[in-house]
Design a binder for these strands. Sequence first.
DNA 1: AACTAGGGCAACCGCATCGTT
DNA 2: TAACGATGCGGTTGCCCTAGT
Length: 311
Amino acid sequence: MRNPSSTTSTRSKITVPTPCCSKVGIKKGPWTPEEDELLANYIKKEGEGRWRTLPNRAGLARCGKSCRLRWMNYLRPSVKRGHIAPDEEDLILRIHRLLGNRWSLIAGRIPGRTDNEIKNYWNTSLSKKLISQGIDPRTHRPLKPNPDSSEMANVPVQNRNPKSPPVLEENGRVYRTVATRVSENFTAPPNLDDQFPNQVAADATEYWPNHDGFNMGSLQSGYDQGKNDEDHIEDIGNEDTLSSFLDSLLNDNVFVYQQRQQLQQQNMFGLSSKLVVSSSQILSHGNIWEAQVSPPMAAFGDKSVGGAPFK
DNA sequence: AACTAGGGCAACCGCATCGTT
DNA sequence: TAACGATGCGGTTGCCCTAGT
């Protein structure tokens, strides 16, 4: 569930029952083949949407939410069912490490898979597999903390630096810390891949080389090196930028900062996509940069009407 | 064969968010 | 600006199946 502190709402806090869930005479429980057929035929003819009134129009004694869920998770032609392939599993692991339990976002990057399916797979299979490998499925870090950093092992990355501010929301935009120089001297990291072959390196010990495309100059334009300990904020762009950003992360690339100009232009339009990446240390110009993008509690790609922004 | 425990998965539920009025 | 409606998301529940005893 969302972290209540991650967002603010102007809505009344009075809980209003979702109308379609409180109706009498609404059928619950497993769907029958007949119901499936009714729903599928109706959507094929009329299209998706207007879920609230769809049951009546389709002749179903279900609530709109139930119809939507059934369609999205089961009946949609694009839904791929069955065994999750190893490459899909690897992708889930990598994205989950970056995003946390953002199932819809993870599903959005795995064609044919639904958020529900991935969530179930995670809860029933992957998390156990990680635990058996000695990895905390929540943090993607070793379950047995390193004695050198035992106190920090379970501390969210964002909170390790007491000076790190929380995610900021201002003027309808969302900001998060981008980079903090944490070390002048680079020391080769241990290779966790040997220990945890199914995991990308735990971010606490992840060091990224200065890949092509990492434009330090443009980074510095958002970060004043004269204020090493200060935090810096960077607005996040739209879903295209986010998508390419995620791609770059998944490919073990570093931020594509040359898109910064484009980002700034996009931000002029008030786009407020929120980006979550666990802290990663980026080697650049002899320094290790700790990218402190919003932690999973932040509202990465928060839902919006008309479809999840990054699906 | 009967019972029990555990896993897998579909579906439900509560609530956040956004657009509209 | 607030209220409302519609939609989407993530956590949780509960049913069904299977393996073990």
